[in-house]
Amino acid sequence: MSATHEATSSGTYGLIAEFRDPEPLLDAAKQAYRAGFRHMDAYTPYPVEGLAQAVGFRKNGVAPLVFIGGVLGAIGGFAMQHIASVIHYPYDVGGKPFFSWPAFIPVTFELMVLVAAFACFGGMLALNGLPRPHHPVFNAKRFERASNDRFFLCIEAADPHYDPERVRAFLEGLGAVEVSEVKE
């Protein structure tokens, strides 16, 4: 991300456009992508369908992690019970076989869900790069309304096509309420 460092030195993170509604934002994001911008993101108070794809997001990655977590949890859980009840501490209860696998299913299931849930929570946060209390976009004007009733599109200075004048004109042409600069 050498481009990001260049942007840092110039002190600008990007230009941000504020919208009142999700539909114009979605439109703007699509047009920006068509115009060739790639380093951009949208910020909304609730999920807007199709917006992630519009800003060029392709790889989600959460589901495979959860699957791996579930598989590991199930195998680990079953293996633990097998080792405990068959190998390490075989204990005769009413003549039941040591390898009484049906009795191991509930704990196997619970551990599958438990590990998958941790993978889900941790994976979602890690892939999103959270927790990250400070981010340049928080410097944007009125950004506190991104968690309330305003919709933002930020084209970042890191983008190879970034040219402040051109980007400002482009965003203003898309029906933004206001376009402003985001300091690094």
């Binding site: 993101d41 609730y46 992630a52 589901a63 959860v66 998958a116 927790p131 928080f138 991104a146």
Partner: peptide, 26 residues
Amino acid sequence: LGWRGSARHWHRYETAYLLFAGLSTP
């Protein structure tokens, strides 16, 4: 945790939320 409502974040968030629902149901 520094949540900023990014479109990319929301996308993963919704997947995670749906999977949580899927895990919690059984």
